[in-house]
């Protein structure tokens, strides 16, 4: 069953067609990679799914609902969480608070309860801090809960971003170049982490340039070039697909 499906999704920026009629689906529980040369429109697709930008045409269905045109916070609440290509943590806040930002959409305390610190609000605070610590523990950062996000090592920041996204209790997790800038050890650990996320019954959609990583972690791979989906299939199929080889051959692309 498909948790996410895109149909003839199109987005142009001025004269540039960033995404040209992309149609595809993501199976529930799968780890799907989206690859392609720089400028292929991968991140634009992510931004369209998460509501950061609005499509010119086409449809996006998530768990059977159309989410086209919804604002990002509504989409998060429906169960899609993301990380960013360039790390976008709340740099000045602690690791714990960063994860608490993800918990926000699953909390209920409103203005009055917060202003008067009502018992229900306090109970919720305790529960949610516990849950946030659980997510930090999940990514292996529990001992750094008090550290300022900006002071963390690069790989830890990437993981903190994942913990923050997981705290929104997503059904679909979207990772934009999670291994970007990571060394071999960190990439290995990330692979383990994605396996663990999959075991929590969370579907993963990721953009990545590290082909070894994509081929080893993904069940299916989607390939984009110039805003068009040129191929999709299992990693083996993709590796032997002539169109994909052509798109990548001779390209000075990392």
């Amino acid at each position: 069953m498909q948790i996410l499906s895109l149909s003839s999704l199109t987005k142009t920026f001025g004269g540039l067609v960033a995404v040209a009629g992309v149609s595809c689906g993501v199976d529930r529980g799968a780890v799907v990679g989206l690859i392609g040369p720089n400028g292929a429109g991968k991140t634009t697709v992510f931004n369209l799914i998460t509501g950061s930008i609005k499509p010119d045409d086409g449809h996006i269905f998530f768990s059977g609902h159309s989410i086209r045109g919804l604002r990002p916070h509504r989409i998060v609440k429906l169960g899609i969480a993301r990380t960013f290509q360039t790390i976008r943590l709340f740099q000045g806040l602690s690791a714990l608070e960063n994860v608490l930002s993800g918990c926000h959409c699953r909390m209920r305390s409103g203005l009055v309860a917060s202003l008067l610190r009502l018992p229900g609000q306090r109970r919720e605070e305790r529960l949610v801090i516990d849950r946030a610590m659980g997510e930090l523990e999940f990514v292996g950062l529990a001992n750094l809960w008090r550290a300022t996000a900006g002071s963390l090592a690069y790989g830890d920041q990437r993981r903190l971003e994942i913990a923050r996204a997981l705290a929104t209790e997503p059904k679909l997790l979207i990772l934009d170049e999670p291994a970007g800038g990571m060394n071999e050890q960190e990439t290995y650990e990330l692979r383990q982490l994605i396996e663990a996320i999959r075991k929590r019954d969370i579907t993963v959609l990721l953009i990545e340039h590290d082909m070894g990583f994509v081929m080893s972690v993904c069940d299916r791979v989607l390939v984009m070039e110039n805003g068009i989906l040129i191929a999709q299939g299992t990693p083996q199929e993709i590796q032997t697909n002539p169109k994909v080889i052509e798109a990548y051959l001779g390209l000075d692309d990392d």
Binding site: S52, H73, F84, R88, F90, G92, E97, S101
Partner: peptide, 15 residues
């Protein structure tokens, strides 16, 4: 606080 730090990230985390 999240909004002050980074409005785009806050919105994308469900605020």
């Amino acid at each position: 606080k999240f909004i002050k730090e980074d409005t785009v990230a806050a919105e994308n985390m469900g605020v």
